[in-house]
Write a protein that binds this DNA or RNA. Sequence first.
DNA 1: GATTTCAATTTGATCGTTCAAATTGATAAC
DNA 2: GTTATCAATTTGAACGATCAAATTGAAATC
Lengths: 356, 356
Amino acid sequence: MDGGTPTASIADVAAAAGVSRQTVSNVLNAPHRVREETRRRVEAAITALGYQPNRAAQALRAQTSRVIGIRIESIQIDSLTTVHDRFLHALAEAVQAIDHHLLVFAADDPDDEIGTYTRLHRTGAVDAFVLYGIDEDDVRPRQMLHLGAPFATFGRTGHDTDHLWVDVDDETGGAAVAQHLVARGHRRIGFVGWPEGSSVGDRRVAGLRGVLDKHDLLGECAGLDLRGQDEIANGVTLGGILLDRPAPPTAVVAASDTLAVGVVQAARARGLVVGRDLAVVGFDDTPTAGVFDLSSVRQPIEAVARSIVRALQPHLPAGGTPPQPETEPSTSEVFAGRLLAPTLVVRASSAAATPR
Amino acid sequence: MDGGTPTASIADVAAAAGVSRQTVSNVLNAPHRVREETRRRVEAAITALGYQPNRAAQALRAQTSRVIGIRIESIQIDSLTTVHDRFLHALAEAVQAIDHHLLVFAADDPDDEIGTYTRLHRTGAVDAFVLYGIDEDDVRPRQMLHLGAPFATFGRTGHDTDHLWVDVDDETGGAAVAQHLVARGHRRIGFVGWPEGSSVGDRRVAGLRGVLDKHDLLGECAGLDLRGQDEIANGVTLGGILLDRPAPPTAVVAASDTLAVGVVQAARARGLVVGRDLAVVGFDDTPTAGVFDLSSVRQPIEAVARSIVRALQPHLPAGGTPPQPETEPSTSEVFAGRLLAPTLVVRASSAAATPR
DNA sequence: GATTTCAATTTGATCGTTCAAATTGATAAC
DNA sequence: GTTATCAATTTGAACGATCAAATTGAAATC
């Protein structure tokens, strides 16, 4: 099991095709320099030997590992786990599309974190980093700028935005939910969210309230905004409080699917049918949302991953790679940061308002 | 942002310390060959320049990348997401402990999967692989053996076990749950599990039934074994069916926390208090289990990760690394495969049996 | 026919590290 | 005083790829 097929080197291919190393290299990297007939002969030898250029040799010569690094955390907030998973997978795909590899590493000790970035960069193991879970007053972007390694973040801080970042426009997401509910006739719209201070949560409410304000509904919705940690149990409690009000909301927006599921339970416990007596909308479109037939705001995680890689690309040492063909709206503009709009996935839980 | 601190090479250190390249190398790799005073001088230069040996150069020279590869999947079963996450993180840590890196890659097309393994191995990017989610009749271990790259699996097939594998002893887990419940006076113990054919699920029931049989309870528990896909909704439905029986179980074991949560909901909907009127036990000890105060069988994921790395170590090209000091029970025995016992985390949901 | 031109191909050198062999310099042995 | 012994250190070579410069050979120019 240990041995395996001895890997062919460029010299083996050259010998097999009766040419020199450099000609083989040219066939792969500058085919126009090689005569048609020679090219075919070399290509045949490459196929026959199953030759693949050695990554370490390329890295040493080109002074670039073609590796992107990302730190993974040990414990995530329950509802974010699925976002994290999708992101990691999407990032792996995006990175592979430009012939790079994705290296993950653990660095739980906060002191260790920046040290690990430094080490990975200094040893040439990693060309650039992706950071996620950036919040309002995160110090890491600044530290990274000081380190000098190229990096991009999923999420942005409140202040310094002089680095590459991509984020989901949570405000737009919140607004979309509000518009959807208002269009369906809801006027008393409640909110069950996270405690203030989480930038993501705060933006979601902001978007929501913006639309409510536009429709002059803030008055009617006053006092219908409750907060708690991201746990199902809190959704049950807070949702229950809202529903027990003298004038309960006809729709409840939750900052996460986790909280939304709790609200659904609270409604059921009161004999209400979600999607008929009460509209509930969550965020993140987790698998759970599908199971509960819950309308939810889906993050464009895959697009975020691609966008991050695209932002990073001009800063990678391996500049030679041709910029991948654009599938999404052209962004030839200079890149500082970029917001991607989420999409509201409408399911049965967000029906029209019916008087109770 | 692109430049960064120019990384020092061994030649820079040598020049700074007034010695040759090789002496610097010796200070790091064979200190006994170097005179005390020289060693100190070189070490000072290393610190001053922040020198870190270049990974690509080492890889090229030693013909080993010191990288372990693992494929990540796009969509996981909800309840397994958290196990997957824990495993990835634990693996990253275990791998770092032996001075290796962890490379993740996506390969969703099944044809592509083995091709990707081959490519990563042939290019020298990855020394060895870790595969997980192996089930009964998985063909991948056989394919990997043919590939020739060292690998170890989390999970085992039914047949060929002539490769390195580590698995959780799910049968023991099921048995532990049964023993716990029987000890607390339960006699009618129901089971809500996955459809037959999933090796993990089947082993969990097997362990359970073994203990029930030993206590002559199989008769009393007849017909209390229901199956469905791993969704909360199925837990609700199946749990409901069990609780509506003329002689309902006093305890329900679920194959996952997801199903267990469904059972809890079904119980509550019937006015039963879980932990008093009904005992419920799940599997995997997800964050959800904690929130619901649910007893659950915790997988020793971190131990699995360490064990996998330890199994892999003698097969890694970088054989020079000293075998890490053993924290767990010594396993100097020859390694074919290894089962690790899970632990039952007892919470409020699994109280003693009370007559209804 | 000698010289220029140019495409096709080869040789030399390098990236940073480490193994193997060679060199240096001191002390011990005879 | 020459030689053997040995520790400490240095030089040479190699891992595999690719850039830059050199070489080859044939066709075009005068």
